[in-house]
């Protein structure tokens, strides 16, 4: 049974419909990627789940019950705009947030110590938050979202602005929480992270869900129509193929290219064109599109449909 059910939820701000009939579910032990370009309605959706705002239409359920104030304690929320009290000490800050989510003072203290150790921030516990670097503040914020061991973890762009080492640390932590059976909602517009981590995805554009389901299924819905190439020499064949409307160049760099085959172009046509142009061909592979590509294709189509109507 899903822990979180969002059903036909709509939110309007004046004449602007930020979220338009969005539905999706999140299961324990799985990470749902809530994806979409900036302004798609991800944060508006999250704000309704966290009860910061209320939906104009539709229902949200937690564990089968309609969302109520008692559910806020079961959630841990890492907002996209990080917010900490700058003058409070790191330790005090975490204890305070823990208490606000229903922990006893002693419990909040013990867990604060544990999390600060785990995230390598123990030396900073007594420092004022404003003295910390942005990355460290983000780790503190992350700890504040997890301190009370919430069943539902809501992370809005959790890795933005982190260096690779710390991003990896937080990623490992998130995966550990998944292993413990927590339900995780992960909002992002960074596709490669979602592809690595998420079990399910829900793609939002212009306030509507345009694509949803388990990541593997979604990818299977798209044919193997992407060719990856690595080579030495002249890459003029890419321009010729594109001009003939045979392929769409997704990405190209010095000696590498990713193209999408258009309208049943046989892969062989690309291979022939390449062999006729380059010195040496190191790689030629036919793959399913990346999430990034699926995202661009789907959102691009919606944009076109919406723009044309």
């Amino acid at each position: 049974m899903p822990l979180l059910e969002v059903e036909n939820v709509t939110k309007r701000y004046g004449a602007f419909t930020a979220v338009d009939g969005v539905s999706f579910t999140a299961q324990p032990g799985r990470i749902v990627g809530l994806l979409g370009p900036n302004g798609a309605g991800k944060t508006s959706t999250i704000r309704m789940i966290t009860r910061i705002t209320t939906p104009d239409e539709g229902t949200i359920r937690i564990g089968g019950e309609p969302l109520g104030p008692q559910h806020q304690r079961r959630m841990g929320y890492l907002p996209e705009e990080r917010g900490l009290y700058r003058k409070l000490k790191v330790g005090e800050q975490l204890v305070y947030f823990g208490e606000l989510r229903g922990l006893s003072r002693a419990d909040a203290r013990a867990r604060t110590t544990r999390w600060l150790e785990r995230l390598g921030l123990m030396d900073w516990a007594g420092k004022k938050t404003e003295e910390l670097s942005k990355g460290m503040q983000q780790k503190v914020q992350f700890a504040s979202a997890l301190l009370h061991e919430p069943d539902l973890l809501i992370l809005d762009e959790p890795f933005s602005g982190l260096d690779p080492v710390n991003a990896e640390l937080l990623k490992t932590t998130v995966l550990e929480e998944r292993a413990k059976g927590k339900t995780i909602l992960f909002a992002s517009h960074r596709m490669e992270q979602v592809e690595q981590m998420c079990d399910d995805l829900c793609l939002i554009a212009r306030g509507r869900v345009v694509l949803a389901g388990p990541v593997r299924e979604v990818k299977q819905r798209f044919a193997r129509d992407v060719v990856h190439l690595e080579f030495d020499g002249d890459d003029g064949f890419l321009d010729r193929l594109a001009a003939e409307q045979a392929v769409r160049v997704v990405e190209r760099g010095p000696g590498t290219a990713e193209v999408q085959l258009l309208d049943g172009t046989p892969p062989r046509r690309v291979l022939d064109a390449a062999l006729g142009s380059v010195h040496e061909l190191y790689r030629f592979s036919l793959d399913t599109p990346s999430l990034q590509d699926i995202f661009v294709r789907t959102v691009g189509e919606t944009a076109r449909v919406a723009g044309g109507s």
Partner: peptide, 16 residues
Amino acid sequence: EEKQHRVLEVMASSVR
């Protein structure tokens, strides 16, 4: 100050 430093969003998600 809470609003400027965006603490209110975290607070509003925890407390009425």
